[in-house]
Simulated scan of single mutants.
Amino acid sequence: MLDRRSMLRTGGAAAFGAFALTAVAGGMTPAEASALHPQGNGLLPDPATTPVPNPPFPAHLTHTERKHLETFDELDFEVFTHADWKRLGRSHAENVRVHWPDGHFTDGIDKHISDLAALFVWGPDTRILSHPLRIAKGDMTCVTGVMQGTFTRPMPDGSGGFIKPTGKKYAINMATVGLWNRHGVMDEEFLFWDNQSFYQQIGV
């Protein structure tokens, strides 16, 4: 049996890509896929610069797989976008481990709430309203999204000072891999985005 955690930690891009292809192959129908690609070439534009409609859920999902994706949509579109942290427990376990793009990880939902809330200190309009790709297999999900906002308030620099707001907007592609437990919440979450592009866009 494939060890999902070993695949993520040691299998690299090839294993992750194999998982994604396997999940997609059993999911969306050609008609559904073509509806998302009116240009007819079957390829997505860059979702961060060209709006992409949220696709229907893949076909042939189990009830649990669909529920995980529905919960994740609610997490980003409602809980995160509206900074409604009291509802984060609907998608995250109390002892959730969250892996960040720079390689560090945190443990516990309270720490994760603190980290998420920090994004809204300098960018109160921070939001995620787009999930161009949504796949699920067993107790694993992978969802891509577009996180966007505007650097309009001072940003804490971690040393007691602040970075002056630039007023610049950002829109970055991101991906989240979630490992779900039998209670329907994530025990572990892996966040991926390009930090260099992010800082360049906000002028830092």
Score class of each variant (00 low, 15 high):
72 F>W: 14
124 P>V: 03
110 D>V: 06
76 D>L: 10
92 H>E: 06
127 R>Y: 02
79 V>A: 12
142 C>V: 14
82 H>G: 01
138 G>K: 08
138 G>L: 11
84 D>S: 00
124 P>Q: 06
130 S>A: 15
111 K>V: 14
79 V>F: 13
83 A>N: 11
114 S>N: 10
81 T>C: 09
98 V>S: 01
89 G>H: 11
73 D>G: 07
84 D>K: 01
112 H>P: 00
117 A>G: 05
136 A>F: 10
76 D>R: 02
122 W>L: 06
140 M>H: 05
117 A>S: 09
125 D>G: 15
123 G>I: 01
69 L>K: 10
90 R>S: 11
94 E>G: 03
84 D>I: 03
140 M>Q: 15
103 G>P: 09
118 A>C: 01
108 G>T: 01
127 R>H: 11
86 K>N: 12
134 R>F: 00
124 P>D: 05
92 H>T: 03
126 T>D: 12
77 F>I: 04
86 K>G: 11
129 L>D: 15
116 L>F: 04
115 D>N: 13
78 E>G: 06
117 A>I: 00
131 H>R: 11
81 T>G: 06
88 L>C: 07
98 V>W: 00
74 E>C: 10
144 T>Y: 07
109 I>M: 04
131 H>Y: 05
129 L>S: 12
84 D>V: 02
117 A>H: 05
115 D>H: 04
81 T>L: 09
94 E>T: 05
90 R>Q: 15
92 H>G: 02
85 W>S: 12
75 L>V: 08
108 G>V: 00
122 W>A: 14
123 G>M: 13
77 F>N: 11
104 H>I: 04
114 S>P: 00
78 E>Y: 13
118 A>T: 01
130 S>L: 08
112 H>S: 01
79 V>D: 09
129 L>Q: 12
94 E>H: 04
131 H>P: 08
80 F>W: 15
115 D>Y: 02
105 F>E: 05
141 T>D: 08
72 F>V: 09
92 H>Q: 12
70 E>Y: 10
77 F>M: 12
121 V>R: 10
114 S>V: 03
116 L>V: 05
91 S>K: 01
76 D>C: 03
115 D>R: 05
120 F>E: 06
105 F>G: 04
85 W>R: 09
113 I>L: 03
131 H>F: 08
90 R>L: 14
126 T>E: 15
92 H>V: 03
116 L>H: 01
124 P>G: 06
125 D>L: 11
108 G>F: 00
120 F>K: 12
120 F>N: 06
105 F>N: 07
122 W>D: 04
133 L>C: 07
78 E>C: 09
124 P>A: 05
128 I>L: 08
112 H>Q: 03
126 T>L: 10
